[in-house]
C-alpha cells in the first residue's frame, strides 16, 4: 500500500481498497486462533486518541494492534490535557514526540485527522471525524459483504437513515461505488445531504424505493438528539416511516443481508427481530472490524521504505 495515512475512502484507489480487504482475510484467521497474536508489529506503538466516547471502535483498534504485538496507549479527551485547552495540533505533536508510530484519531469535527497529518510525521488513521468519513467502518462492511457475496460489483446496497450526519454512509458510498456496487440511500429529507447524486448515489426520501431488490441493507444509527434538534418530528414517526422491519426487509432480495455499524437503537432504526434475525451480519461485523483494522495497521506500518505520501 502506497499511502501513509488512512483518512477516508474518497482518495483511496480501488487497488488499495482491494489490498486492505485481501489482507483482512488472513488477519481474521489470527483472531480465530487460540493464540491470538503474531509478532508482526513488535516494537511499534499505536496511540488511540479519542475526542468522542466510543467504546467499541477504540477497543477494536486496540485489540487489532495488540494481536499484531504493537503496544497501545489511549488518550481520552475527557481525562486529558484536552480539557485544559490543548490544541489538536499540540496533542498530535506530543503523542508523536513520545514515539507513537500510529495515531488513531476519533474526533467530532470533520477534517481533524487531515489536520493532524499536516503537523506530525506519524501515520494517522481516521477512526471517524465528524460527518466526514469513517473508513475502517466502511472497509469492515465491505469485507463482511465480500465474505458472503464474494463480490461487491453489481450488488444493490441500500443505506437507510440519517445520511446527513453519517460518516459511515459517506465512506461506504465512496468505497462501494468504487468497487462497482449500486448504492441507494434513503432517509427523511431533513437528513439527506445535498448533492450526493453527483457522486453516483441514488437518493430517495422513502425507504421502500431503496430496499426494492437490494442485496445488502445497511441501517444507520439514529442519534436520539435529532428529534430535539427539530430534524425529525418524533422517534415514533421516524420508526414508522423509516425503521427497518421485517415487512420492509421483505422488499429486498431473499438472500439480502443486514448490516448496522452499531451501537443499535433496537426499536428505532431497526426492529429487534431484524437485528437478531438470520439475515443479520451485525455480530460478524464486529469480528471483521478487528480483522480489517489489523490489515490497515499492518499495511500502514510495514513497507515504509518505499511508500509515497499521497495524503
Amino acid at each position: 500500500m502506497s499511502i501513509k495515512h488512512l483518512l477516508g475512502l474518497q482518495h483511496l484507489s480501488v487497488n488499495t481498497i482491494t489490498q486492505i480487504l485481501d489482507t483482512a482475510g488472513p488477519m481474521k484467521q489470527i483472531i480465530s486462533r487460540n493464540l491470538k497474536k503474531v509478532p508482526t508489529l513488535r516494537g511499534k506503538a499505536v496511540a488511540t486518541v479519542f475526542y468522542e466516547p466510543s467504546t467499541r471502535t477504540r477497543m477494536s483498534f486496540e485489540l487489532a494492534a495488540k494481536y499484531l504485538s504493537a503496544d497501545t496507549v489511549g488518550l481520552a479527551a475527557a481525562s486529558s490535557s484536552v480539557v485544559k485547552g490543548e490544541t489538536l495540533i499540540d496533542t498530535a505533536r506530543t503523542v508523536a514526540a513520545m514515539g507513537a508510530d500510529v495515531i488513531v484519531l476519533r474526533h467530532p469535527m470533520a477534517g481533524a485527522a487531515e489536520l493532524m497529518t499536516r503537523y506530525t510525521d506519524v501515520h494517522i488513521v481516521n477512526a471517524g471525524d465528524g460527518m466526514h468519513e469513517h473508513p475502517t467502518q466502511a472497509l469492515l462492511d465491505m469485507f463482511t459483504i465480500l465474505e458472503l457475496k464474494n463480490t461487491i460489483s453489481g450488488l444493490k446496497v441500500a443505506i437507510l437513515g440519517d445520511i446527513l450526519h453519517s460518516r459511515v454512509a459517506r465512506s461506504n458510498l465512496w468505497g462501494l461505488t468504487k468497487l462497482g456496487a449500486e448504492v441507494h440511500v434513503a432517509g427523511p429529507p431533513t437528513l439527506l445531504p445535498v448533492g450526493l447524486q453527483q457522486l453516483g448515489a441514488h437518493v430517495h426520501d422513502c425507504p421502500e424505493a431503496a430496499l426494492e431488490g437490494a442485496d445488502v441493507v445497511i441501517a444507520l444509527r439514529l442519534q436520539l438528539e435529532r428529534q430535539r434538534q427539530g430534524l425529525i418530528p418524533s422517534l415514533r414517526e421516524y420508526t414508522r416511516l423509516y425503521g427497518l422491519n421485517a415487512e420492509r426487509l421483505a422488499l429486498a432480495r431473499d438472500d439480502a443481508v443486514v448490516l448496522h455499524p452499531g451501537p443499535m437503537n433496537r426499536g428505532v432504526e431497526i426492529t429487534a427481530d431484524v437485528a437478531d434475525g438470520s439475515r443479520s451480519l451485525i455480530a460478524e461485523q464486529v469480528t471483521n472490524g478487528v480483522a480489517v483494522r489489523m490489515a490497515c495497521l499492518y499495511l500502514l506500518t510495514v513497507g515504509d521504505g518505499g511508500r509515497e505520501d499521497i495524503n
Binding site: M1, Q19, D22, T23, G25, P26, M27, Q29, I30, V38, P39, T40, G43, L68, Y298, L299, V302, G303, D304, G305, G306
Partner: peptide, 22 residues
Amino acid sequence: LDITLYRDDLTKLDYHPVLYKT
C-alpha cells in the same frame, strides 16, 4: 503456511509482501 507476519525484516522492507491465508 504463510509466514509473512512472522518475518524479521518487515520493518526494513520497502514493499508489502502479499499476505496469503494459512
